[in-house]
Design a protein around this nucleic acid. Structure first.
Lengths: 341, 341
DNA sequence: CTGTTAGCGCCTTCAG
DNA sequence: CTGAAGGCGCTAACAG
């Protein structure tokens, strides 16, 4: 049996209420002041009786506004992205929008595909959660004429609103913490820097902070998430070269922290005992790994919420200038950066 | 400046190609056999020049099929759910559907709301990922007349296709593993059983398996995710009462395993050393916590994929009988259930 | 206060 | 092979 469903239309309701569809439409749109109590009553009943619900497609077609917002996520597997999503969703709910979520799975072509898809569904705006996104993919976004807000990362040569972390403050706090607790050799570990502004900003703040302290050695290295061998090499090498002083790792994001922790496991370099470890992004399991891993927690939910509000501003035409909005991160101290003697 | 966008319509294309919109429509729908090469060429160019893309709203309105599928998730924060989502998404892509994701955040009212929303957007089918969903919420689903498939959990007194884990096999494998490795007092720990079939089935298989072994003590307990104090009490009590023999915990799902691990931390009951621990659902950090946590991994992606295929069958009218489709789980052995002397 | 009418962008007969 | 006309469900003038 095929599902025919044959849902009731505004016409059915009008007929059942013995009136025209205009009045029904008025009722639906809250123009109650223009309806007699009697008519209102009849319409109400008809709607209930037929279990009628307006067809949003038709509505959107007519009004030219769908109240749909698209979200493009590079990797929905990333807890950071999920938290952001929750914030966006809450904002959508509060503002009467519906969210269309698209996960590109970090496949470059998917993004283009989804962009077209979203626009063909007449979304009114788009949020791009660029965390984990490849650069090539990001660059293709520029074509879109829709109101758009980026999360976390900027696109070189493309002005667009961005909502993200205050990288300078965050990297500074993290570095200061390590120095304060006695670490004297620091390695900033990130995925390949490329032109990714978040990585660059964090690295620069890290260096600047180091420069302010004498006797602290600073280095940085790049490692791909999937290259376990390289990771082992980098970490072990760093550890050996600084056997004479307390060494610590500052890892640029949560996904990488997971891999780094695995590597340290393999190398038998217990965090907090043989080497310090501090990672950007909070991890739900942070307290369970060894004596805990110190993290720099981002206000992810707020970031998502703010991003959506910004898109809406653009949709409403209230946003005139391109803006970058940043939030403060918070250090969550655990065993992996315990103070040294 | 308001975004007007004023996207090109089929009319614009027709005009630009010096033809009627019928031909353009034909072109769009792949009826190439009915178009002269010359006309085809012109249309192609016009489309490219105007960057035209058909309005899916209008299309859906006309044809009565939107190629939209709704997904209702109770808690998108749950990694299990995210993996399932990925499977569903892949299937959507493969079959030409678009996914509308709704996260109810485990708020009971949200579900009703989203159900209405989805149906007003004329989705052709719905997948409900019931993992973590409250019972009250599930029961309200029954009203929907749309093709619907449940994931993980059945609804009492409501026949509906279900895709999930083979709970009996899984619970059996897990229990056998614990017994084989020398544990002689087992506690099956779940959230309140209620009428949740997954919990009940797992528990029953656990008991049955225990019954097949002499000298193995079996118990079960229920604990809410958020009640840390109760959790501590239950675990500590169990541990003390069986100080004389190797004891182990079998935890019914991943979210609970996280809380249990925290509790064991608090109580200083190292898993794998003082007490065994085995949890349903794979965890990305499982190997990093202590000497690792043994898990029973579900083929989540496949479950999602299969669920979507089933919805499509229903949409196409190919599904006649109500069916339950189950997948096998796989034991991933780690340090928390190490063999005892 | 209420109903009639004309499309929104597209697909689908039905005639050329 | 091609185009004109009608209508999907709804809203927004415009008349009563």
């Amino acid at each position: 049996m095929k599902h025919k469903a044959a849902r009731a239309t505004i016409n059915d309701v009008a007929k059942a209420a013995k009136t025209g569809k205009t009045s029904v439409s008025r009722y639906l749109n809250g123009e109650h002041h223009a309806l007699s109590p009697d008519l209102k009553q009849r319409i109400e009943q008809a709607i209930a009786a037929l279990d009628y619900r307006p067809n949003q497609m038709a509505r959107g077609l007519k009004r030219g506004r769908t109240r749909l917002i698209g979200l493009i996520i590079a990797d929905i597997t990333n807890p950071y992205s999920v938290d952001v999503l929750c914030g966006i969703e809450a904002a959508c709910r509060a503002r009467g929008f519906t969210l269309l979520v698209c996960n590109t799975n970090n496949e470059i072509d998917q993004e283009q595909h989804y962009l077209q898809l979203l626009s063909s569904y007449q979304v009114e705006g788009i949020v791009v959660n660029a965390v984990g996104m490849r650069e090539e993919a990001l660059n293709r976004l520029q074509q879109s004429l829709l109101p758009m807000v980026l999360i976390d990362r900027k696109i070189p040569d493309f002005s667009c609103d961005v909502v993200g972390l205050n990288n300078v403050q965050a990297a500074n706090d993290a570095t200061e913490h390590l120095v304060k607790n006695g670490y004297r050799a620091l390695l900033f570990l990130s995925e390949p820097l490329g032109l990714v502004n978040t990585r660059l900003e964090r690295l620069q703040a890290f260096r600047q902070c180091c420069a302010g302290h004498t006797g602290v050695l600073c280095e940085n290295a790049e490692a791909a998430l999937s290259d376990a061998a390289a990771m082992d090499r980098i970490i072990l090498d760093f550890y050996r070269r600084h056997a004479d002083r307390p060494a610590a790792l500052l890892v640029a994001n949560g996904a990488l922290t997971l891999q780094v922790a695995r590597a340290m496991r393999r190398l038998d370099l217990d965090w907090g005992r043989k080497m310090g470890l501090l990672g950007f992004d909070e991890l739900e399991w942070a307290e369970l790994a060894g004596d805990g891993i110190t993290t720099l927690k981002q206000p992810t939910w707020q970031i998502g919420y703010a991003a959506l509000e910004r898109v809406i501003q653009r949709i409403e035409g209230e946003a005139t200038t391109i803006e970058e909005q940043t939030f403060h991160g918070e250090l969550v101290v655990r065993g992996s950066t315990r103070p040294l003697a």
